[in-house]
Amino acid sequence: MPLATADVIGILGDNLRLRKSVLPLSSKVTTRWTEGLGLPRGGETVLYTGMMYQLIPYIEGLVRAVDRLGDSWMGSYTKLGRRVNRLVNISAFMARPSAAERAVYDRVPIDVVHLLRRAGVRFGALYEDDLYSGALAYDLGLDEIVAEHAAKVLAAFRKHGVKQVITIDPHTTTMLRSVYPRILEGYDIGVSSYLEVLTEKGVAGNGHRVRPIDGEVVVHDSCVFARYEGVVDEPRTLLAAAGLTLRDPENAGRQTWCCGGPVESLYPAKAAANAEKRVAQLRAAGDEAVTMCPMCFVNLSSAAGSTMRFRDISEYLREAFAS
């Protein structure tokens, strides 16, 4: 028996309230990507991950664990599971990704650091104060818990003197840019995604060296970037400047088709079915696709198996502009 909707939401909410993330991870795990980069702590402008890329391999592990549980004791005693979770972080025990799986996602913020430096941007990082944005909890309607959590994020920005945040993934971008101003009084933090910053800085121009990538790639737009934040042209501008020939699938740009990821935590079978439909659209347009959201990446890669290759946009851009 799958975990009941209320219990899954309860566990996610408890985790955000008690441990500052829907899936709590140690700061050693969430800050591993910063090692050796020499990023200043805080400052007016910071690169902010919202833990999204770091969380994904653990969420994958958790989904696998919940799948495995099936009719086991926890399936029958989910309320006990929630009670236990309040005392012990059971989700951390259940999700154990390999070092190789973690490295795939840690690589993204590292690539972004090199790209921003190449574009001449000066910025720091918040290390252990780089908190989860609350995106999933907000989507699930846990508004009071998210408002309380958002205040902690803003306190971290104030503590480090942050005025401008550069985000990586679309979910953190929309939370910090469009949701926080509505739920936090006096919120005055400027927020741009690194794709917008790189486009504005003209990373491909201004005499910057480019190592063109010869090839074709199908663009999978993130729903949140395209329809919530209007980020449609920036990834295309950057990928084209990287030398790639871009192909649009049947649904593209503001009409993009969701990867299914948003319902993964509650209804994994529905998420997988939706991802399969999207993969079919993408495969009809080419053999390799680019994503710009970690949830899209994991859902589509998983649905495609070996039939199609997916890469995060940061990987192409790093190769072309900062290798």
């Binding site: 909707t5 209320a6 309860g10 909410g13 699930l140 309607g141 846990l142 508004d143 009071e144 818990i145």
Partner: peptide, 18 residues
Amino acid sequence: VRTLRHHIVRTGFGLGEG
């Protein structure tokens, strides 16, 4: 839809208090 979720979470599931 998100507002409906908030309503269900609060009144149906008894969750959501900060």
